[in-house]
Design a protein around this nucleic acid. Structure first.
Lengths: 156, 156
DNA sequence: CTTTCTGCAAATGTTTTGCATTCAA
DNA sequence: TTGAATGCAAAACATTTGCAGAAAG
């Protein structure tokens, strides 16, 4: 059994447990997220599904992504350009992001030192740390070498 | 001569150098930023000025804040709740933020270890680091102790 | 005087929402 | 059958923009 199938089963259980209905739209949106390693935006998912002739609306994509976030299947991230990105949270441990300001490429990183410092800093300031947002913005190797053209990928 | 006055003079010079005009609105918005240590949002600045009977529009506040950011007097920050915050950049060195999810309180921090790690991580991934965004979200001491009531301060 | 700036109102762009219709259970 | 989910179009909301009139230099 593939890992994605397990996640589909898990999601169905979660829906049942919450007395929510298993609809074709919800399952299609889930699969779209599961079968992509990207950081997807709503409109992107919406277009993908429409291209596959899945009958769905933007409203439903938003509602389902929120639902997926609530059950912990998806991480909703704000890279500061006015559009939320959603990524599969199940298959990856916690990480932060490096974002190319020119081509929009997103690379993931995790640094135990930083995680540790965050905990210490919060405590020192009397805060109970619940979550964090850490993004590095810059130019990736290809963009620095002029191999790319400025894109609308992100202008965060 | 007060430090704020120096900044006012500096801003006037910057305007002249760029062939931009010294208007009452621009000066009022600058002073509003200079005389506050807070992280202000546009509407907040707009309301403050109107309360002081300064004739200004939201459009001008936005335009001037962008201008102040361009000349390096102000830092524009996105804490993820859909409204930009602006803070006086002249009087403070670089720092990041800890934000209380309940009362919206914002505390500043700077950590050399983290700054160092960010540089290393970027380099390791072939990125030229240009800027970063680092925010810790949690509950401040007072909110943890139940001394406050949930506010609309920020729901980032 | 000339050119920039301002204020207004309209536009923008993403996300949310009300409501009638459709559909899962 | 019936309450929940969907799709549509309208609303929301912060921010931006076009343009005519105001004002700086």
């Amino acid at each position: 059994m593939k890992i994605a199938d397990e996640h589909i089963t898990l999601f169905k259980s979660a829906l049942k447990q919450a007395s929510l209905r298993i609809t074709s739209q919800r399952m299609a949106i889930l699969e779209e997220i599961l079968h992509s390693d990207q950081h997807r935006e709503c409109d992107d998912i919406y277009s993908s599904l429409r291209a596959k002739h899945v009958s769905v609306s933007r409203a439903t994509v938003y509602r389902t992504l929120d639902l997926l976030e609530q059950v912990g299947f998806v991480r909703k991230m704000d890279i500061g350009d006015g559009r939320f990105r959603y990524e599969n949270k199940l298959k990856q441990p916690h990480h932060d992001h490096i974002i190319c300001l020119q081509c929009g490429k997103i690379v993931e990183f995790i640094d135990p030192h930083i995680e540790q410092r965050q905990a210490t800093i919060s405590k020192d300031h009397g805060f109970e740390l619940l979550r964090h947002n850490h993004q590095l913005f810059g130019l990736c190797e290809r963009c620095r070498d002029g191999e790319t053209v400025p894109s609308k990928g992100t202008d965060a």
